[in-house]
C-alpha cells in the first residue's frame, strides 16, 4: 500500500508550513518521514543541504537534536512514573554534553519559555491539565535548540480557550528562537492562523501549495475549495462562499483511483481527469497546483 505518492516539498527556513488534509491523506506519514522516523521507499530528503535519506541510525543521531516533534497527545509520550524535570532533561542528557549544573539552569529557562512554574519540575505528568502537558511537550521539543519542529495535531486535543494560548506560545517561540515548523492539522482555521504557507494533501499527494492567504481565500484546486467551504465557521455567516459539496468518503489508499486521485469526488471532473495524472504546476506567486482544470 502506498501512503505517500511522489511528494515533493520545500520547507523554507523560519517559516511555518501548514499541512492540511482529511484523515488518511498521509499528513502524519509525511511529517514522520521527513524526520526519518519512517523510511521512504524511494526519493530524497535534504535537511540543511545535507542528504539525510541515506544516512543510517548512527549517522542520523547528531541530526536528531536539530529536528524535533510535538505530538497531539503529550500524555502518551510522557512516562507517567517520571518527574517533569527528568522528562525534559532527557534529550539534553542523551544528546547534549551538559553538566548537571547547566541542566539545572537550562530546565528553569525552558519552563520560563513555555510559561510554566519552576515548581512543576518535581511533579508527575498526571498532575497537569491538557494545556500544561502540551507546554511540557513543547519544552521538551525545544530543549536541544532544534531548527525544525514537526507539530502533528499539536493543539487538536485542547479546549478552544487553551488552544489559543498554545498557538500564541508556538508563534512566540518561533520569533524568539528562529524555529521552522511543519504544522500538521485538520483544523483549517488553526492552520490559517499560524502558517506562512499552506499545503493541502489528498490521498498521499500534495494537490496545492502556496501562501496561506492565497490558498485559503482563492483556492485553485477544487479539493481545497471544497475543504474550505465545508468548514463551519462562526465568523463568516454572511461572507461564506457557497459550499462545494463532496459526495462520499475519500477512497482507500489500497485502491487509489486512476488519473487524478480526486476525480471520483470532484464536481468538475472530466474524462481527462480519470485518464491522466495531473502534475503540480506553477500558477504564479509561488503557488503550485496539481489539477488539469484549476479554478482561476
Amino acid at each position: 500500500m502506498r501512503i505517500l505518492n511522489e511528494v515533493s516539498l520545500d520547507v523554507y527556513e523560519g517559516e511555518t508550513l501548514g499541512l492540511v488534509g482529511e484523515s488518511g491523506s498521509g499528513k502524519s506519514t509525511l511529517g514522520r518521514t521527513l524526520l526519518r522516523l519512517y523510511d521512504a521507499d524511494s526519493g530524497k530528503i535534504e535537511f540543511d543541504n545535507l542528504d539525510i535519506s541515506t544516512k543510517n541510525r548512527r549517522e542520523l543521531r547528531p541530526l536528531r537534536s536539530k529536528m524535533q516533534m510535538i505530538f497531539q497527545d503529550p500524555y502518551s509520550s510522557l512516562n507517567p512514573r517520571r518527574r517533569i524535570g527528568d522528562l525534559i532533561a532527557d534529550p539534553i542528557r542523551i544528546h547534549g554534553h551538559a553538566s548537571e549544573r547547566e541542566i539545572h539552569v537550562r530546565l528553569r529557562e525552558l519552563m520560563d519559555m513555555v510559561g510554566l512554574s519552576h515548581s512543576f519540575l518535581t511533579r508527575y505528568p498526571h498532575e497537569f491539565s491538557g494545556g500544561q502537558r502540551q507546554r511540557i511537550g513543547i519544552a521538551r521539543a525545544i530543549a536541544l535548540k532544534p531548527k525544525f519542529i514537526v507539530a502533528d495535531e499539536a493543539v487538536s486535543a485542547l479546549d478552544v480557550s487553551v488552544q489559543a494560548q498554545v498557538i500564541n506560545l508556538l508563534m512566540d517561540l518561533q520569533d524568539e528562537l528562529g524555529l521552522t515548523y511543519l504544522f500538521i492539522a485538520h483544523d483549517l482555521s488553526v492552520v490559517r492562523q499560524i502558517s506562512t504557507r499552506t499545503a493541502v494533501m489528498y490521498l498521499g499527494g500534495i494537490v496545492e501549495i502556496g501562501m496561506t492567504d492565497d490558498v485559503m481565500h482563492n483556492p485553485a484546486h477544487p479539493y481545497t475549495a471544497a475543504l474550505i467551504s465545508s468548514v463551519p465557521s462562526h465568523d463568516s455567516i454572511m461572507s461564506k462562499s457557497p459550499r462545494i459539496k463532496l459526495q462520499g468518503d475519500p477512497p482507500s489508499p489500497l485502491m487509489p483511483p486512476s488519473g487524478c486521485r480526486f476525480h471520483t469526488r470532484c464536481p468538475f471532473a472530466t474524462d481527462k481527469c480519470a485518464a491522466e495524472v495531473p502534475f503540480p504546476h506553477d500558477v504564479g506567486s509561488g503557488r503550485s497546483v496539481a489539477c488539469h482544470f484549476p479554478i482561476s
Binding site: V160, A164, I167, Q193, D213, D235, S236
Partner: peptide, 15 residues
C-alpha cells in the same frame, strides 16, 4: 479564542 477563517489574521489570538 477561535482563529477566524476570514478577514485579517490577528497577530496574537485573544485567549
Amino acid at each position: 479564542s477561535i482563529p477566524p477563517m476570514t478577514g485579517e489574521r490577528p497577530r496574537r489570538l485573544p485567549s
